[in-house]
Design a protein around this nucleic acid. Sequence first.
RNA 1: CGGGGCGUAGCGCAGCUUGGUUUAGCGCGCCUGCCUUGGGAGCAGGAGGCCGGAGGUUCAAAUCCUCUCGCCCCGACCA
Length: 414
Amino acid sequence: MRWTESLINTLWQAPSEAEISSHKLMLRAGLVKKLAAGIYIFMPLGLKVLRKIENIVREEMDASGALELLMPTLQPEQLWQETGRWDKMGKEMMKIQDRHKRQFGLGPTHEEIVTDVIRKEVKSYKQLPVTLYQIQTKFRDEIRPRFGVIRAREFTMKDAYSFDRDIDGLNKNYKKMREAYCKIFDRCALKYQIVEAESGIMGGDVSHEFMALADSGEDTIVLCPSCGYSASMEKAEGDKCPKCASRMKIKKGIELGHIFKLGTKYSESMGAEFLDKDGKKKTIVMGCYGIGISRIIAAVIEQNNDENGIIWPKSIAPYQVEILPVNVNDNETMQIAENLYKNFLSERIEVIIDDRNERPGIKFKDADLIGIPIRITISSQKAKDNIVEIHKRDTGENKLVKIDDLLENLRIYL
RNA sequence: CGGGGCGUAGCGCAGCUUGGUUUAGCGCGCCUGCCUUGGGAGCAGGAGGCCGGAGGUUCAAAUCCUCUCGCCCCGACCA
């Protein structure tokens, strides 16, 4: 990508609406723009990051054996009446009417729909277990949208649902999902804590939250230093460990994901049953598993930034390498820069070249702000000796290398 | 929804108390030219606003009054 063709607009000062660093940086780097409270446009640079995360999630979900499908956002009232959640969800569900005055909800979650799918498709124990997932836009009319994409009213979520013959199967699937979640958050370079949680309106008895540790987080979690027990504040109801009674540490976090053992709450009310080996009708046992995809972006930035800007982990960086020619009016510089750019493209290295005719200071500041992991600076003096500089955004390490050795040196970091 | 605060150019802000001195201003950004090119340079010229909206008071409203819409922060909810 050429900067001059990228529609990347950075801001010197963060809009006053932003309070926490991830929100400020997302706006300053131009990843997102606000359309209304809790409603954001993902600009091209921001969308690249979102897609990277989606792909990681997709890969790990597929690896766990889950099947991807896509369910509608628009959901008929009747299904929600079956479980009683049409009223229970209350004002959090955005509701609309069609021209025939039929009521629809904009999906805040998809238990009703997916259970409807399964009760129609699954008849036999032979079809179980099965896990379905989707990556899709969700709508929740939050009481108070906040912190940019961290609590938005429209957001991208991965939601998965497991269907088993019995509790035993559910326990296995639950464990499998938990492991998949760990892989996902590890790959996103997040520091997180798994905590016992309340199930809330989802129902079921067991649930765990994956919390990104961040001082700016809205959620409070407690950790027991002696026995390792950890839970959300609501679940723990205090700072004494329920397991070993020692005093627990309190930390702040951002909820990235939440997994639930639902049991038969939905399958029972909606009649999702199957015929078991013995020819008897049984109720399907369910679990559900959510990840806030767009929220991950904010959490990663919250954990990876400095006074100059974002520091992307390479797994979700919008580009791996930024080429920064110090002076675009210098022929020698530009010849090298353009050659490298073409080279990287053919090597399938994700690269952006800052080909703007700006003074170096502006380009360096912007490079730091958008946080590409590796910067290659090309200046006229060093170009004479066929030398360029590699700069690592995370460590600040600088290295001068011969152009012929550049790719080799780069491979170490990519 | 309760409590607090804010809407003036793309972003950050001043002006409002005490209406007229404003053709509505400043910094950054944007456009043109010159100059400059290793950490947000300089000079000159320029574009961009129904001062959130609607009513009202007044000879006169960004400024005073009423209503309204939007946004942010603190609380309960959530990925």
